[in-house]
């Protein structure tokens, strides 16, 4: 699974930066088009739910999603990993 913040909903309160046990959410730096400073994700692949949701078949942790007052945090299904052909240029 992939962790994502919906920029159209986030109001930049920074509550997520406080409660994630892995400190994945970091205070943002630049305001977006709406003027909201949306937090940045620091190596989101560390998130328990990203790693183990599909293996366990249920929601894990999820405190950021429950805490976010603006329903802006969600997980999306990731494309299965595909092997890529690497073209080497000489």
């Amino acid at each position: 699974m992939k962790l994502a913040i919906d920029e159209t909903r986030c109001k930049g309160c920074n509550l997520c930066t406080k409660i994630c046990p892995y400190k994945i959410f970091k205070e943002g730096k630049k305001p977006n088009r709406k003027g909201t400073v949306v937090p940045e994700l620091d190596r989101p692949e560390r998130c328990t739910n990203c790693r183990l949701r599909n293996l366990y078949g249920r929601q894990l942790c999820g405190v950021c999603q429950l805490t976010c007052p603006d329903q802006a945090i969600h997980w999306t299904e990731e494309e299965p990993y595909e092997l890529h052909k690497v073209a080497i240029e000489y």
């Binding site: 909903r9 109001k11 930049g12 309160c13 429950l66 805490t67 976010c68 007052p69 603006d70 329903q71």
Partner: peptide, 22 residues
């Protein structure tokens, strides 16, 4: 949730949204 009604009108950081989630 009524997705068409979100985002709600609560101020940034208002705790009410959290309680609705729970």
């Amino acid at each position: 949730f009524r997705q068409d009604r979100l985002p709600h009108i609560y101020c940034a950081g208002c705790g009410n949204g959290t309680i609705i989630n729970c």
